[in-house]
Design a binder for these strands. Sequence first.
DNA 1: GTCTTACTTTACGTTCGCGTCAACTTTACC
DNA 2: GGTAAAGTTGACGCGAACGTAAAGTAAGAC
Lengths: 132, 132
Amino acid sequence: MSEELMTIRQMCDAFSVTPRTLRFYEARELIFPERRGQHRLYDRRDRARLTLILRGKRFGFSLEEIRQLLELYEPGGANHAQIAATIDVARQRLDDMERQYAELGEAIVDLKAQISEAENRLTTETKDKLTG
Amino acid sequence: MSEELMTIRQMCDAFSVTPRTLRFYEARELIFPERRGQHRLYDRRDRARLTLILRGKRFGFSLEEIRQLLELYEPGGANHAQIAATIDVARQRLDDMERQYAELGEAIVDLKAQISEAENRLTTETKDKLTG
DNA sequence: GTCTTACTTTACGTTCGCGTCAACTTTACC
DNA sequence: GGTAAAGTTGACGCGAACGTAAAGTAAGAC
């Protein structure tokens, strides 16, 4: 267990996904588990990538966008031009994320206000009944 | 023009959506334009709702979730129990949004670090070529 | 050895959020 | 009143991200 390999079931339990999902991500070339015979085995690297995949999904990125971003987290392999291209992609995503961050902050403030306003309506309505 | 009514085309141009999209939102009961004869006419309220719809979509909410949230922004009509239920939904959404906000902040820091690291790899590679 | 259990591939099905015709009706303009 | 522009209602199509059933394999338990 020098590499802390996990079976597909252990992965599913750990990350709350289904086997279908993991195989789907593999088909889309987002993760590359080893094969011991026919079975898949996931190592630390696969788990790190899956964490990033699930995070990306929560932010509304498509699997293809996530795949491109993951290249940025890979140490070697790509050539100069590829790295540069990936950086460009990443910078655009970063812009999107920062815009989304700001907007989300506003929306939170907004929603909070709406909630307390609605709460006031409730208590006021109650008071009306009591004093009416 | 006391209510600043807009045709579907004007709406599409103003919000960068297609007529199909607006009719789809109407079918899902997210907006309720008036009818002048057969044609739809959108007022200030419809535009406000559409703004919230598009914002919600950017945050990854489904149209059904958005529909529920929109009830919160509606002044009258609902009864006590309905308002209370809507507030519950809203609070859960708010939790999600705040979690997402925090996580997005981390992801931004993370991605920035990855980008500058990748940039360093580029410049280092260049230096290697120059000094090699 | 066979039974169970975990895993595999293949492949068709499903939901969401619209796109894209097709066929009609209005409305605007001359 | 004819015609073009804008709008209308179906209805089917489509890509993304899986769900799900079918059928096969491989390894350990007894």
